[in-house]
Amino acid sequence: MPTIYEIRSFDAVARLGSMREAAKELLIADSTVSKHVGAIEAKASARLFTRVKRRFVTTKRGQEVADLARQCVEAHGALLAALAPVASQ
């Protein structure tokens, strides 16, 4: 099962089309993003991105995974918000 970190990296690359931009957004190293994406591709036993010029573009299967990854990231954010303590007034 992919970790939330791998899912977040995959989602960022799918949205931004760049491992470097994904790394900047997530505040992690480019190499970490690459490892996360590679781990998800290994678990899927498929290439989920193709390189077009200097951008990463999802394959058909990659787009399906990206849509689910986006839902996971959003649900994770909602969970964290629900678990956050309510500020005292």
Rank of each mutant, 00 (worst) to 15 (best):
E64R: 15
A66V: 11
A69V: 12
D11V: 13
S88G: 14
L16I: 00
I28Y: 05
F10H: 02
T32W: 07
S18G: 15
I40M: 00
L68A: 04
D30C: 06
A46I: 05
E41I: 02
G62S: 13
A44K: 01
A69I: 03
E64M: 03
L80Y: 09
A42Y: 05
Q89S: 15
P85H: 11
M1W: 11
A82S: 12
A81R: 13
E74P: 11
A75V: 13
A39K: 13
A23S: 07
F56R: 15
S34W: 08
S88N: 14
R55L: 09
A84N: 04
Q71M: 12
P85F: 15
R70E: 12
M19F: 10
Q71H: 04
Y5I: 00
V52Y: 06
A14Q: 06
L80H: 12
R51T: 12
A44R: 02
R8V: 08
E6P: 04
E74W: 12
F10I: 03
V33D: 08
T32A: 15
A22C: 13
V37H: 03
K24C: 05
F49D: 02
I40T: 04
T32F: 06
A81N: 07
F10T: 09
G17Q: 07
A12W: 01
K60T: 01
A81C: 03
K43N: 03
M19I: 04
E25C: 10
K43Y: 13
T58G: 04
P2G: 01
R8Q: 12
R55S: 13
T58A: 07
C72F: 10
P2M: 01
A78W: 03
A42H: 05
A14R: 04
L83F: 13
A12L: 02
E74F: 06
T58R: 00
E64K: 03
T32V: 07
A44S: 14
V52G: 03
A82D: 08
R47V: 10
R51S: 08
R61N: 04
K43F: 15
T32P: 14
I7K: 06
S45N: 08
E6H: 01
K53E: 14
F10L: 06
V86I: 05
A44I: 11
I28L: 00
E25P: 01
S31R: 15
Y5P: 11
R15S: 14
G77S: 10
S34G: 05
T59Q: 02
Y5N: 04
V33Y: 02
R20G: 03
P85C: 00
E64G: 04
V37R: 03
M19A: 03
A69E: 01
V86H: 03
Q89H: 08
A78G: 07
T3I: 00
Q71K: 12
H76D: 11
L26A: 00
T32G: 05
K43V: 09
A75I: 15
Q71T: 12
T58Y: 11
S34T: 00
A12P: 15
R70Q: 02
L16C: 09
S45F: 14
D67S: 02
P2F: 08
D67N: 14
S34A: 10
V13A: 15
E74G: 11
V65F: 09
A46G: 07
A12C: 14
L48I: 01
A66N: 12
M19G: 01
A22Y: 01
L27Y: 13
E6F: 08
V33K: 01
Q63A: 15
A23L: 07
S31G: 12
L68K: 09
I40L: 04
V57K: 06
L16P: 05
